[in-house]
């Protein structure tokens, strides 16, 4: 390939990278707008929309709800998903493959179809707007990410280490906590982060099962966007963007550390 062609493709890729990242960044200046408008570029500078996030209970409550749900979901999904990933790894390839395929189905079922069904069931069992309801639905959605992340760690895990520990007299539980878990910890940790983000960002199911007293942040953002041009959505979007970037950077850092170890 000639130098010219390579430069051409390089420029094309730079444009693609820009198109992937830049549009989202436009919300940052808008979050500092002075007037209540989503026009770009914004006039003036103010922090009122950030203040609004704390002062307005609609926003602050939905943020707290989302954080609470995501925190519980990340623990529940990580525990259940890690157990499942270990089970799959120890099963015979054929059976393990089937179970894995079944557990990953939430990734391919269209969101609205799930949401309608979950809403129907929750209405029948008074679970609409309940913490249990959110946690069950979001954990189900997050488990595939945990299984994939932990599964990747387990695929490079040498099971002879467990045999060695057992032959030296360690019990199954001791072996798990002192040998297996530390070695697959990077996978478990990235699974935990993915589970948190999955729950924190989930909107379709939450749109159906929310109640006025318990709304999640994405639902609040969606409602605000369909209602008016309130730059508070840009302020909260900026914060989510920073938080997510931070979490991914942490995830990548742990990922590369594992390879070096």
């Amino acid at each position: 390939m000639s130098r010219f062609q390579r430069t051409l493709i390089g420029l094309f890729c730079a444009a693609v990278a820009l198109w992937l990242v830049a549009p989202t960044l436009i919300i940052v200046p808008i979050s500092f707008a002075e007037k209540k408008s989503l026009a770009f570029p914004p006039d003036g500078f103010s922090l009122q929309w950030y203040a609004n996030l704390i002062r307005n209970p609609e926003w602050s409550n939905s943020i707290l709800n989302s954080l609470q749900i995501a925190a519980i979901v990340s623990v529940v999904a990580t525990v259940i998903g890690t157990l499942a990933a270990i089970g799959i790894a120890r099963m015979k390839p054929r059976g393990g493959g089937v179970i894995r395929a079944i557990l990953i189905t939430p990734m391919i079922v269209p969101g609205v179809v799930m949401a309608i069904g979950i809403y129907a069931v929750y209405l029948d069992h008074q679970l609409v707007g309940s913490l249990t309801g959110y946690v069950a639905a979001h954990s189900m959605l997050a488990i595939p990410f945990v299984i994939i992340a932990v599964g990747a760690s387990l695929s490079v895990f040498d099971t002879r280490l467990e045999t060695a520990a057992a032959s030296l007299g360690a019990s199954r539980i001791t072996t798990f906590f002192t040998i297996t878990l530390p070695l697959i910890a990077p996978g478990v940790l990235s699974g935990l982060l993915f589970a948190f983000v999955t729950s924190f960002d989930e909107v379709i199911v939450a749109l159906f099962i929310n109640s006025p007293s318990r709304k999640t942040l994405p639902v609040q953002i969606f409602a605000s966007m369909t209602r008016d041009s309130d730059p508070t959505v840009a302020a909260v979007g900026t914060l989510i963007f920073l938080l997510t970037s931070f979490i991914i950077a942490a995830g990548l850092w742990f990922g590369t550390r594992r390879r070096r170890a």
Partner: peptide
């Protein structure tokens, strides 16, 4: 980054 936030950027 949440789909809602990215769609917000496209609306703008």
């Amino acid at each position: 980054v949440s789909g809602v936030v990215r769609t917000l950027a496209w609306v703008i």
